[in-house]
């Protein structure tokens, strides 16, 4: 992990130097530093980006980590999403400034003899950076050491297709027009202690790869999923929140998030993604136990913080307050 920043922390100003349609849904942003070189990153890292409406989303960096003057992200415009990607795609122009966080890497490449990278749709972004970094270092590894499976519905839906088509070790598969999904089993049948697997894509792909690698050593397999999580589902139960600054007791029913209940009680908590991924609504836990459901806090942060947009209480009562500085 890079250890830089974390949470929302959109403290870096960048300028949109380029904006390019990669597919009908996916737009690439070339983000340049306004002054000094940008903080270093490693393949697999992501940044949080605040869109013009103030919503924060996480995006993987897909340019080469050796580039110090820019960050490149590819944004899939989600018609059904919570609005973050729509705002970024529709309401920005070249030359606009954006606030971003320093890069953070929860999907870091670890040393191995061989790599299998499995990308679905816009999940190609972190894996393209990994592919380029690994093939650039190919001298240190056996020639066939990197394989990239890139799955999309059609050629037209596949970002960076021309860059990757025909490249060594790249397998392209388009499931549309009756071709169906790629049979992943031939790639996963033999568990190999010297291969690491990195997978980024929609939940269905992640579920498939997870199920098909149950006979592998789990520490060799890493997933990245920015789809987010939900704070209320069949597993939620009622609890009581106590707002530390005032001592007010706020019942949180199973059908409501902690964040929603606090707001309904008139307590202002800044938030953005509502999915436990951006880090904006982080609160301090003073007493009680959290049931963490977020995808953003580190184990260390979890000891005394929680993300109220998705996380709940594991105890009957939990005392929370502003995160402080």
């Amino acid at each position: 992990m890079s250890g830089n920043g974390g949470g929302a922390g959109t403290s870096l100003a960048v300028r949109i130097a380029g904006k390019r349609r990669l597919t009908s849904r996916i737009t690439e942003f070339d983000l340049r530093a306004t002054e000094e070189p940008l903080p270093r990153f490693t393949a697999g890292a992501h940044i949080n980006v605040r869109n013009p409406a103030g919503e924060v989303r996480s995006y993987s960096l897909c340019n080469a980590p050796s580039e110090r003057h820019r960050y490149v992200i590819a944004v899939a415009r989600e018609e059904e999403g919570r609005g973050g990607s729509k705002g970024l795609t529709d309401e920005t122009e070249c030359g606009d400034s954006l606030w971003i966080s320093p890069p953070r890497n929860d999907f870091e490449l670890r040393p191995a003899l061989r790599y299998l990278l499995i990308a679905g749709g816009v999940g190609i972004t972190p894996l393209k950076a990994m592919y380029h970094q690994l093939t650039a270092q190919a001298g240190e590894r056996e020639p066939a050491g990197v394989r990239l499976l890139y799955l999309s519905r059609s050629e037209a839906d596949a970002a960076y297709l021309s860059e990757l088509a025909g490249a060594e070790g790249v397998v392209l598969h388009h499931s549309g027009q009756g071709r169906g999904r790629l049979d992943l089993w031939p790639y996963l049948a033999e568990p190999d202690e010297d291969t690491r697997i990195y997978c980024c894509g929609p939940p269905s792909l992640i579920a498939d790869v997870r199920a098909l690698t149950m006979h592998w050593r789990p520490s060799l397999i890493r997933f990245e999923n920015f789809a987010g999580v939900a704070g209320t589902d069949g597993t939620s139960t009622d609890f009581t929140a106590v707002w530390h600054p005032t001592g007010e007791r706020i019942p949180v029913p199973a059908t409501e998030t902690l964040l929603g209940a606090l707001r309904a009680a008139g307590i202002e908590v800044a938030s953005s993604c509502s999915a436990g991924t951006c880090g904006t609504c982080k609160l301090r836990v003073h007493e009680g136990f959290a049931e963490h459901r977020d995808l953003v806090l580190s184990e260390r942060e979890r000891r005394n913080h929680l993300m109220p947009c998705v996380s709940r209480a594991a105890s009957e009562t939990i005392v929370v307050g502003p995160r402080g500085r």
Binding site: W185, A189, P191, A211, L212, T213, M214, H215
Partner: peptide
């Protein structure tokens, strides 16, 4: 015997 999604692995 052990299977992963119907594929025998042991």
């Amino acid at each position: 015997t052990v299977a992963v999604r119907e594929h025998e692995v042991l």
